[in-house]
Simulated assay, not measured.
Amino acid sequence: MTSLPTAAEIVAAHERWLAGAGWPQTAASPAGDLWSWIEANHRHNSLLWAEEDLARRTRVADAEIAANKRAIDRYNQARNDATERVDELLLVALGLVDAASARTDAPRPTVAAGARLNSETAGSMIDRLSILALKIRAMREQAARGDVDVAHVEASRRKLVQLEQQRADLAGCLDALLDDARAGHAYFKVYRQFKMYNDPRLNPALVAESRRAG
């Protein structure tokens, strides 16, 4: 079986990438391996986070907010695509999916009898760890501000402790799931998100718009 990353390694990678000069703008396209897709997920979460901040502005032209919203849609789709790819690669490495079907809309599980199904996938847990890394970085910045009162700093420090605990709890759950999956006691599936609002064939508003244009 291919060696799988631990939650501690993923958390450290999230922090390292966030600290990288020019990242996420300078990140390379995924190379196809598990780590490159974990980075791609984190990269698109980071870009999405920045656009979400910009989309809350109230003193810019509506066109700028519309551009932010469209970017949010793109990054959210890419983040979900990367999460699904992480799940595919983990399941193949664990021997829990037929490799030839892993990238289809209906991957075929190859699971030992009696194994329990985990409702949350390992990829979605890694995605949540990525988001927590972004929250922790942002709260660290708030706790270090010198232009706010003491109450703001103290409140930010308390929230930072809570966020770090949440990340530690989630990391432990990820390790437990992968350990149980290795042992044949648990499994998860690839859950396709089928983001209908991004698909011009499925979004009724886009279908209607296309018909009017035609």
Rank of each mutant, 00 (worst) to 15 (best):
M1E: 02
M1T: 07
S3I: 12
P5G: 05
P5D: 01
A7R: 02
A12M: 01
A12F: 03
E15I: 11
E15V: 13
R16V: 10
W17T: 07
A21E: 15
A21Y: 12
G22W: 10
A31S: 15
G32H: 03
W35A: 13
W37P: 00
I38Q: 00
N41W: 00
W49K: 04
A50S: 14
E51P: 03
D62G: 14
A63Y: 08
N68Y: 09
R70K: 12
R74W: 08
R74G: 11
Y75C: 09
Q77G: 07
A78L: 15
D81L: 15
A82R: 03
T83D: 04
T83P: 06
R85M: 05
D87G: 05
D87F: 08
L90A: 06
L90R: 03
L90V: 03
L91T: 05
A93I: 00
L94H: 04
G95L: 00
G95R: 00
G95S: 02
A106S: 14
V111I: 11
A113M: 09
A113W: 02
L117I: 06
S119P: 12
E120F: 11
G123Y: 02
R128W: 02
R128A: 14
L129N: 03
S130T: 06
I131H: 05
L134I: 05
K135H: 14
M139Q: 09
M139Y: 08
E141S: 15
E141Y: 08
V150S: 09
A151V: 15
H152A: 15
S156A: 15
S156K: 11
R158N: 08
Q162H: 14
Q162A: 15
Q162S: 15
L163R: 10
Q166T: 08
Q166F: 05
A168F: 04
D169R: 15
A171P: 10
A171Y: 08
G172V: 04
C173D: 14
D175F: 12
A176H: 13
A176Y: 01
L178Q: 07
L178M: 12
R182E: 02
R182W: 01
R182H: 07
H185T: 04
A186P: 03
K189C: 10
Y191A: 07
Y191I: 07
R192Q: 12
Q193C: 09
M196G: 09
Y197H: 10
N198D: 13
R201A: 14
R201Q: 09
N203G: 00
P204A: 10
A205M: 12
A213N: 05
G214P: 03
G214F: 14
